[in-house]
Design a protein around this nucleic acid. Sequence first.
DNA 1: ATCAATTTGTTCGTATGTATC
DNA 2: CGATACATACGAACAAATTGA
Lengths: 256, 256
Amino acid sequence: MPPSPTPRISRTKRLTRSAQVANDIKRWIVQSHKKVGDKLPQEAALIQQMGVARGTVREALAALQAQGLITTSTGPNGGATLTQPPYERCLEAVSNFMYFEPVDIATLYALRRAVEPELAANVATRLSDADLAELDRLIGASHPAHGGSGDWNERREADLVFHDRLADACSSPMLALFCRLLNDIIRRVIVVRNAQQGFQAFDDDVFHSHSALMDAFRARDAERARAVMREHIEQTEALAMEAETRVQRERLLMDS
Amino acid sequence: MPPSPTPRISRTKRLTRSAQVANDIKRWIVQSHKKVGDKLPQEAALIQQMGVARGTVREALAALQAQGLITTSTGPNGGATLTQPPYERCLEAVSNFMYFEPVDIATLYALRRAVEPELAANVATRLSDADLAELDRLIGASHPAHGGSGDWNERREADLVFHDRLADACSSPMLALFCRLLNDIIRRVIVVRNAQQGFQAFDDDVFHSHSALMDAFRARDAERARAVMREHIEQTEALAMEAETRVQRERLLMDS
DNA sequence: ATCAATTTGTTCGTATGTATC
DNA sequence: CGATACATACGAACAAATTGA
């Protein structure tokens, strides 16, 4: 019998007990100023403190785990530990959201054209020597004449990883998040046909643009990096629109 | 006894049984080309098909429900129904992701400066007369001399809702998603002090810029709308940086 | 390195509430 | 009203994983 300990009216929406427990735990996290790595009370303690059954507590913890806020471990001194929610949770949420929505290539690239120059300007003064070396390696891997794979899709992947690495170096988590989301949506959704025949223009453009970007990065010139990136995305956009592309929505829901 | 119907080795990463069931259901959704409104098999059928316990199936369905992919209803012919995942799931995921990350106002506005002009250009040729009327109403509500509230926070909210309405009219779900996410993060995170004293410059700027936007919208001039919006965000950004603002991260975790 | 204690993970059973037809 | 079928909550037992003596 759920005795409803707080006789709230709650005529609009009834919150389940596990959801209440989950919110209480969240509130406890905020008010206790808990940080990543701190441990939550164990199941037994939560059962006592909240006065609910074990299944209810576990359901609440499962909700927090599904949001990526905690991980749990077994054994003595085990239990739930606060963690930084992984990027994959955001990607999953956005992928689910977009699955039933129409996706078109033009606006995806329009968005890239808006945010990627900002990313280039952000990282221009922040890239370490190791970062620059890794980017150089990826540039090579994206062109067949400079050590890249013979498979067009693998070269395309190296191109996208180049942009992912820039996002990794970004000082703004939100800007990095948007750029990575765009990269992954493009990765999952866009399929380019006729990849083999006569598409070396794509390889050449990527190689040339990325190399120009590296020059701006090494000069620590944020504004030049921004301009080069804008031009790069515009060219890529034009080539993508010109090629026979199609949207493959199915992959959005998978790989969770 | 877990009979493990598919004797997969899975040495790399052990997935919980409920997660496997959730993925199997997702795969079934994709392969069956299910659309919003279609019904999933009932619990009893899933228990039989998957060969797992009731609790496991319920946990898997709870995961899909947490992702907003299904809603469940009771009664005869009840069960799980496919739904369009709500925007709130994306906001929740991004909010959780950002909670432990540093948030600064400058880069949030830099992002707005990148995407909002794109939004303005997108909707310029799409706004209906009803949309334009609603936007006019919100412009009035955002200025104390044109019917707006005396409370500074309420006027600020009208300003943000104006931008939300533009996102609602956007033809690109991804662009709309980014703009709404930015609006909500700004809504939750940024607190402006000294709101009462001498900040009519903010009201005036918003009123003037939004009005200029409406002119461009009525003229169906996408490029002018883009330019006006860019200038608007830049001015707002400058005013926000000038004011005594601070970041209140706590609200990111709450209101789930 | 083995073994025992601890803690979470999984499954089952049961009862009751609740919405739908 | 009443039958159906899901929703929620509790309790118990056992399995699995981890830690530490």
